[in-house]
Amino acid sequence: MCQKGFVCYDPTLHRTRISRNVIFFENQHFFPVSSSTVSSSSTVVLPSFEQQFSDLHPLSSRFQPGIVYTRCSRPQSLLVAHPIFDPTMLQIQSVAVPPAPSVRRSSRVSVPPNRYGFPSSSSGNSISALTAALSNFNIPTCYSYAAKHDCWRQAMQEGIAALEANYTWDIEPCPPTIIPLGCKWVYSIKVRSDGSLDRYKARLVALGNNQEYGVNYEETFAPVAKMTTVRTILALAASSDWPLHQMDVKNAFLHEDLKECIYMKPPPRLFLSPTSHVCKLRCSLYGLKQAPRAWFDKFCTTLLQFSFKQSKYDTSLFLWKSNMGIVVLLVYVHDIVITGSDSALLG
């Protein structure tokens, strides 16, 4: 029987019971047996239930535990050596214990060495100086606020000029069955290492949260470099004394062509007069779900055309071998690290 318990027979009610809480009296017989029968023969013949029920005493009085465990008192010597726990005594002892000495903290201000190129301030805290410099800039969160300032209007004009120079869209009438995607401006500032202002930046972003799978996007996965690969390349360049270069691709997501047909509402003030025309995207745009994947596919295809080999262990790692040495290129979204032993090609 598949039961999680012991199957017991109740001779009084002639029923079987299943229970997990069972006490076994291994030193007593279920049926009363005389001592002569047990001593004369090792085989005991159990009588039937009908013959013995009349002579049986109540089960509760006959069956008692054969072994009873009692807790022994502790010796007096142990009581003296290890006194019994008393909460009141614990409180008294805790008051009597002197407080632990406080941990000494260093008051020295940590300043990075000058050879690392970190900015310094009068207080010696470069992080505080950079944070204070960033807090002086007001970054707009909407177009209406940014349009009131010349610096942000100039940044938006530069963003539109870059999109038009890249032929990002075509101005066409919107089909009646298509709902165009929205867009918005995202504003940020670029600062130098000393906290001073470098430039104002405005980026037009498509509202990709309104895209529908199978309609205007499909695959979205784009591989990025593994941190293990990054550490390995840096360690290899340091141990082999290779030159190390880092570069950032400007407007990386604007350099790939779109396979899907996507219509987007024009950004504010793109047209001087109101119109029903919309922007049909030819190239990818920041904010689209497939933008990272389209950029990586375009970058990978271009490198393979220049005889680079893509690693099988990390798809973001590309190798180029020649008689003069090797060139290692690692891409993480739009950040690229280049190193190798072929100094002529790297130079």
Rank of each mutant, 00 (worst) to 15 (best):
C174D: 05
L181E: 06
V337F: 09
S94A: 15
T131K: 15
F308P: 03
Q3V: 14
R269C: 09
F63N: 01
L78K: 11
F63W: 03
K201L: 04
R192Y: 10
C283S: 08
K312R: 11
S61L: 07
N136A: 15
D342H: 03
Y145W: 02
K250P: 00
L345F: 11
L56G: 04
D335H: 08
N125V: 02
A225K: 03
A100T: 14
T177R: 09
P175L: 02
V103M: 08
Y286R: 04
E212V: 10
S188K: 14
S122H: 13
V95H: 12
N251A: 11
N136K: 15
I23C: 04
Q76I: 01
L317V: 02
S102L: 14
T43V: 13
N136S: 15
V249N: 06
Q211C: 04
T131D: 11
V278N: 05
R15P: 00
Y9V: 02
L79F: 01
I18Q: 03
K259P: 00
P83M: 07
T70V: 11
K190F: 05
P98S: 13
V328G: 01
S122Y: 11
V205I: 13
R282N: 12
D86T: 11
C72V: 11
S322C: 12
Q305F: 04
K190Q: 13
M89D: 12
V22W: 07
H277R: 14
V249W: 06
G117T: 09
L254M: 11
P243T: 12
K226T: 05
V186N: 03
P274N: 10
T43I: 12
A162G: 04
M247A: 08
Q310F: 00
L56Q: 06
N138C: 08
S122P: 05
N216C: 09
A146H: 02
A147S: 15
T168G: 06
H14S: 13
S110P: 06
R269K: 14
F49M: 07
Q93V: 13
S40M: 05
C8D: 03
T177K: 09
A129E: 14
R192C: 06
S316M: 02
Q154C: 09
L281P: 03
P175Y: 09
G124R: 07
T229N: 09
Y217S: 07
V22H: 08
V45T: 13
N210W: 05
P112H: 10
G287V: 01
D150E: 15
M264K: 04
T302G: 02
Q3Y: 13
G195P: 08
I67N: 08
N21Q: 15
M89N: 10
L346M: 11
V80E: 15
D55R: 12
S42V: 00
F271T: 10
P266F: 03
L181N: 09
P268D: 06
F24E: 01
